[in-house]
């Protein structure tokens, strides 16, 4: 029906092409100035948080282990959207008012921190104990063995699962539209409410997400190749 109506009516076709073209710029701006920076910033913050959480989980200090466990459990056990709503709409009730942008950065970072910490923990544990021992045997401290020997190898192991997390994050940033961050999907919604071409605008947004994720998977491939140079195939 829809396709029929497009091709049967040349005026409508022209109008759709016009809208697609004129909306491309605001959507791309949303992607370049909001979606992509939000993804990059929260991924970096999230990974730092994740490494610290993973180290807390494998440490011998019971209190640290417990804090890390509770954090991971709480974040993984509640929906991301609910977490964002608590930060943005809930906290003002107790006098903490955050703007949309900081709310989104905090919310997504906490989320990535919890999920990625499990990946990083598993990657660290996958490195044989003999590697730590070899480091210690040449006089290294815990920190030196961790940063020079174990983490570089764990990084290689964690690239495929972390790429998954990263790609999910790109798409999850669309949830920020619901706490008023004017990222790409929110712009698509805004434009669609003025011209009622919902299918066109949402499909356009979907395609841009797809392109971004496709480019990321290419980067992942390159990274994997780089890190595989020291393993036999």
């Amino acid at each position: 029906m829809y396709l029929n109506s497009i091709f049967a009516d040349p005026d409508r076709t022209a109008r759709l092409i016009d809208i697609a073209q004129s909306s491309l710029e605001p959507l791309l701006k949303g992607a370049i100035f909001y979606t992509i920076p939000l993804t990059l910033i929260t991924f970096v913050c999230g990974i730092i948080l994740a490494v610290l959480t993973a180290l807390a989980r494998i440490s011998h200090i019971k209190l640290l282990q417990m804090i890390a466990r509770i954090y991971v459990s709480a974040i993984r056990g509640t929906p991301l959207l609910v977490q964002l709503f608590i930060l943005f709409y809930g906290l003002p009730t107790v006098g903490i008012t955050l703007d949309p942008w900081p709310s989104a950065i905090i919310g997504f970072s906490l989320n990535i921190g919890a999920y990625a910490s499990e990946i990083i923990r598993a990657s660290i544990l996958s490195i044989p104990k003999g590697q730590w021992e070899a480091g210690y045997s040449i006089g290294m401290s815990y920190r030196q063995a961790l940063t020079r020997i174990v983490l570089p190898q764990a990084t290689r192991v964690s690239i495929p699962p972390l790429s998954n997390t990263f790609i999910s994050l790109v798409k999850d940033t669309s949830l920020a539209s619901l706490i008023l961050v004017t990222e790409m999907f929110r712009r698509a919604q805004e434009i669609a409410t003025t011209n009622y071409e919902f299918l066109l605008l949402y499909t356009e947004a979907a395609l841009i997400y797809w392109v971004i994720c496709f480019l990321l998977s290419l980067v992942q491939g390159r990274l994997e190749m780089r890190f595989d140079r020291y393993v036999s195939r």
């Binding site: 003999g130 590697q131 020997i149």
Partner: peptide, 10 residues
């Protein structure tokens, strides 16, 4: 070590 434990990334 018995299993060498060389650092494989170096």
């Amino acid at each position: 070590f018995q299993s060498y434990n060389l650092f494989p990334h170096m």
